[in-house]
Simulated scan of single mutants.
Amino acid sequence: MTPLIKASNLSIHRSGTTEAVLKQVDFSIRPGEIVTVVGPNGSGKSSLIRALLGHMPLASGGVARKAGLRIGYVPQKLQLDSAIPMTVRRFLSLPRRVSDSVARTALETTGVPGIEQRQLTRLSGGQFQRVLLARALLHEPDLLVLDEPTQGLDQPGIVAFYQLIEDVRQKTGAAILLVSHDLLVVMRASDRVICLNGHICCEGTPEDVSVDPAYHALFGSGARGTLALYHHHHDHDHGAVCEPKLGQGGFSVSANDTHVTEQTRA
């Protein structure tokens, strides 16, 4: 299939210098694909995202995007002024107003129905991340880009959010590009995991990357087993509640969904 985004020989320098942040990166993501990018702090993960979105100048190489590509973006951080009151519903209509039905559907899709009149500053961390995801879904994107979306969540919240991402892909058909520095949980549903440290060290399925020598050279000999493979089985009714459980070598999740559980734990 024709890629939604394709980067060829992409290199980025630190502002005002010739020091490389990324060197000769080739990257693509296809329709409906889930790609997870992992790497330590300073490895160039966020720079790669900004370059793909067209928000960062390139030292060399190029980025091609499918004509008419719609992208939904969940940033790594979003600062809110607690002195300025803003409801969830108002936030979803910035900068372009959407109808009540569209806003309601987006919140239902991300597992937080009925919170339109809640103040943003009074949401839990997990609820706020789901509102950000709902906002990214408003205009039916072909590609969802999530830059470390689980930052600040506890482990049950991380598992629940990854489970939600899988559900969103199934419901919408959108491709998902997820960036993370958290090696405790990587989605089992990822079609590819890319290990980045200024360049692509290795890539492949989660299973392949977890045993790749380049991965262990980057994260240490103790990294075996830390790339937990999260399994989400769709043999349940959405909206039910379960308790995420920590199994040997990583997380396991019972058959019920954790959409509601995460809201109270985050």
Rank of each mutant, 00 (worst) to 15 (best):
E108F: 00
D182V: 07
R130Q: 01
D182Y: 12
D100V: 13
E166G: 14
H139L: 11
Y73C: 01
S93M: 01
P75S: 08
Q163N: 09
F128V: 06
S82W: 09
F91D: 12
G114H: 10
P149C: 07
L94H: 01
P149K: 08
F128E: 06
L143R: 07
V159S: 11
G126E: 09
T109P: 00
L132H: 07
T150L: 00
F161V: 11
L80S: 05
P141T: 14
S82P: 13
T110S: 03
V74G: 11
R97K: 13
Q129V: 08
I158N: 00
E116Y: 00
L184H: 15
K77F: 13
T172H: 11
I115G: 03
D100S: 14
T121K: 14
L94K: 01
I158G: 00
L184G: 15
R97N: 03
G114N: 02
S101A: 15
P75K: 07
K171E: 02
V88C: 06
Q119I: 01
V112T: 13
G126A: 07
L94M: 10
L123K: 12
Y162V: 02
D81R: 12
R96Y: 15
L164K: 06
T105Y: 04
V179E: 02
F128S: 06
A103F: 10
S124A: 01
V98L: 04
L107S: 08
Q79H: 12
T109I: 01
L137T: 04
R104F: 02
K171F: 01
H139T: 13
D154A: 10
D100I: 04
P141C: 14
Q129C: 09
F161N: 06
Y162P: 02
S180F: 05
A175Q: 04
I165H: 02
I115L: 07
A103R: 08
V131M: 09
I71N: 04
G173Q: 10
D142Q: 13
R96H: 15
Q163A: 14
P149Q: 07
D142A: 11
T110W: 00
I84R: 13
V112G: 03
P149G: 05
L144E: 02
T109A: 14
Q170T: 11
V74L: 14
R122N: 14
L78N: 11
L80F: 15
R90H: 13
V179A: 13
Q79R: 14
G152M: 07
Q163M: 12
G157T: 06
P85S: 03
L137C: 07
L153K: 08
V186Y: 02
V179K: 01
T109K: 11
Q151V: 12
G173E: 10
E108T: 08
Q170C: 03
S99F: 04
D154Q: 12
Q129S: 09
A134R: 08
G111D: 01
K77N: 14
L164Q: 05
V145H: 06
V179M: 10
Q76F: 07
G72Q: 10
V186S: 00
P95M: 04
V168S: 06
L184E: 15
L132V: 07
I71F: 06
L80H: 12
G72P: 12
A175E: 02
D147H: 11
L153H: 05
T121W: 05
